[in-house]
């Protein structure tokens, strides 16, 4: 465990930051859209879980399959 913590401290954060920020942007936009719409394809709470917990692919899956276009 200590090794992992050390390796986290060694990580070059400025390098990783853009990835983290963009993933976060993607997640927040998907989340806002999901909450604002009353109807989604399938239960809304499952989509919220998918968006928050499935890293990177969760928001994409929501935008592709979760939105209703009407």
């Amino acid at each position: 465990m200590n090794e992992i913590i050390e390796s986290f401290q060694e990580v070059n954060w400025p390098l990783i930051a853009p990835i983290l920020i963009l993933s976060l942007v993607l997640m927040i936009v998907a989340l806002i859209d999901c909450i604002k719409h009353d109807k989604t394809n399938g239960p809304q709470w499952i989509w919220i879980l998918v968006i928050v917990f499935v890293n990177f692919f969760g928001p994409i899956l929501y935008f592709l399959f979760g939105r209703r276009n009407d």
Binding site: L26, D33, I60, R67
Partner: peptide, 18 residues
């Protein structure tokens, strides 16, 4: 309106960065 202009470029940038 359906955020395609936001999320599709973001996905490509993320893929390109990773």
């Amino acid at each position: 309106r359906n955020f395609k202009w936001l999320w599709i470029p973001t996905v490509f940038v993320l893929l390109g960065l990773m």
